[in-house]
Design a protein around this nucleic acid. Sequence first.
RNA 1: GUGGCCGUAGCUCAGUUGGUUAGAGCGCCAGGUUGUGGCCCUGGAGGUCGGGGGUUCAAGUCCCCUCGGUCACCCCA
Length: 429
Amino acid sequence: MAEAQAPLRAPKGTQDVLWPESTRWAELVARFARRVGLAGYGLALTPLFEEARLFRRGIGEESEVVGKEMYEFTDRGGRDMALRPEGTAPVVRAFVQHHPPVPWKAWYVTPAFRYEQPQAGRYRQHHQLGVEVLGTDDPDLDVEVVSLAAAFYGDLGLRRVELSVNSMGCAEDRPAYVAALREYLASRRDELCDEHRGRLEANPLRVLDCKRPRCRAVTEEAPRMVDFLDEACAAHFGRVRAGLDALGVAHRLEPRLVRGLDYYTRTTFEFAATALDTAQNAVGGGGRYNGLAEAIGGPPTPGIGFGIGIERLLLACDAEGAFPLAPPVPDAFVVDLTGGEVARDLAEELRRAGLAAERAFDGRSAKAQLRQADRSGARLAVIVGAEELAAGTARVKDLRGTAPELAVARAAVVERVRALVAGREGGPS
RNA sequence: GUGGCCGUAGCUCAGUUGGUUAGAGCGCCAGGUUGUGGCCCUGGAGGUCGGGGGUUCAAGUCCCCUCGGUCACCCCA
């Protein structure tokens, strides 16, 4: 016999999203698809797992995501595989593999897996919406990508979202900046927090991320990457900011914005939901990654994209009272008091006519069926008892309004339902 | 990975210094109305008190371990 043990449940850091909450997810993704579809982006579907070296090369061996958090496993064929920790690398891999015509615009919706300590807004499996564009370094594309994300937040009714932008330069100008930053931080080493005092040599950019007051006081006055940009990078960034201004996309320069994945170059950006008072208030972020395609073995190809975390986005919506839950309701609920055959046939007939129809099962009482009809939110009840069955009619009852309850011929039920749903009273005939 | 707080019905929560068969509200089911929902009344179903071990005559209550949630660090979506 099996010994007593804890009941099965969703793994730590994961969650089941059930109806009706899941209707928000479906609507969220639909609105995203519509928004980016208007700009010419098409859906890209790629595997949830890849060879682990894709992420090690693309994201960077030393990054937190790859180094400490990746779900890695050896498959039965001895291959070193990994569950995708983010959405960009697989899409770029697909681009390199299939070399579609450029500029290539893709969007995706995908789970992402990271082995971390869960808390609100941070999960071991979370879900991201995003876009990637490969094949052009045009700064106007950066503007398009950023403004798409901003527009999507607006589509959901979010108002309290702040956009930060920065430029991380490129392989030519960044070394000089890193050297200057390292020198500056070393000169004020004693003022840094314990953790970064020892690590500033290895990765000075990380110190810019630190949220502790001690480090922030130091980095406040640190050299800024934007002051080290070479001519081309400076021109690029200038055009990006001018473009955002031209489109009315409010943003603020955040010289300390350094994103965690190694592949970023030039433009980086992040959206923070200020309605969330937790540490997990980043609801989206991205940037340009002109070296990524080459890093994973493809031809040098500029690219840019962003990722948006669905769970956090919904938390932000809740915090603002935006994007409320609105599950679809049936147009009609068929109440059958004669054994169920009528409900079976009438519900099908209504559905074939394009109307949303529900019904009860298990031969429940009239009261129970009507109660279920009411709870379902159905606009109408279509009631058939012995009398109606004998007369070949059905009673159509308005559960939400004042239309009179009428007995209509079976053949006229669809028409009557359609008329009432369309908002017309449809007088007695 | 580290530390704080929390874990009782589907949900939100009571449960007094450890003391008989663990409660409420909401939700669900049924009846009141052998064919008409919402309001109301009555009744009912539903709980390994997260899991395991220990202390005790006796543990939801105390102790240890563990799992999960949450908050902070860290990192990011």
